[in-house]
Design a protein around this nucleic acid. Structure first.
Length: 190
DNA sequence: TGTATGATCGCCT
DNA sequence: GGCGATCATACAG
């Protein structure tokens, strides 16, 4: 495994579901603001719910570049969503970051979100990007260099698994992963 | 607690 | 021209 793809103990050249599971409990910061990752989803080119399904396009090209880079896209015309590219270069896979447990920069996040409730600051892919001020400017950047920072979790975590949310194809794949029992999930696991 | 709906943009067919 | 890897609000039960 290359040095470019291995940091915080995560090999981003591994398959998306493996990377997704490994990311639970890792702390993600953007310009020093962020928290612990509590919910993610895996996507892969071989499966029709993925943006990379069908090959590279102007929107999704960063999922086909080196693993360990960001893929940021706009959802429904108003929200930004953050992914981490994985698998080997050229494959087209990623992990969608769906929820964080806010830890650092609470005031900045509250101001950007326009609300006080910590539980609502980062409990959803669009919400978290608003709280961390992630936009198209953050697309296709290495995740182990500023403004991004990834910090390994200190303790073992129990990971819950279930079907992905908000998609209409490949609904049956159990590719949503979360920190079991966390109050900061976008939706509880059953 | 849940279902429905509008906002609003860019990519893909 | 249609359709989202969404969110906040509005209303029903």
């Amino acid at each position: 495994m290359s040095k470019m793809t291995l940091f915080v103990g995560i090999d981003f050249s591994a398959p998306a579901p493996e990377v997704a599971r490994a990311l639970i409990g890792v702390t993600l910061l953007v310009d020093g603001v962020g928290g612990r990752i509590v919910e993610v989803e895996a996507y892969d080119r071989t499966e029709p719910a993925a943006h990379s399904y069908g090959g590279p396009t102007p929107r999704n090209f960063s999922m086909f570049g080196p693993p360990g880079r960001s893929y940021v896209y706009r959802s429904h015309g108003l929200h930004w969503c953050l992914n981490m590219a994985c698998r080997e270069e050229g494959h087209g896979a990623g992990v969608l970051i769906r929820a964080l447990e806010p830890l650092q920069g609470l005031d900045a996040m509250r101001a950007r979100r326009g609300l006080d409730d910590v539980r609502l600051l980062c409990s959803g892919p669009g919400r978290l990007c608003q709280a961390l001020a992630v936009t198209r400017a953050h697309n296709n950047l290495p995740l182990d260099a500023p403004p991004f920072a990834l910090i390994a979790g200190a303790e073992e975590v129990e990971v819950a698994v279930g079907p992905r949310i908000g998609i209409s194809k490949a609904v049956e794949l159990p590719w949503r992963f979360g920190l079991a029992g966390s109050r900061f999930l976008s939706k509880p696991f059953r």
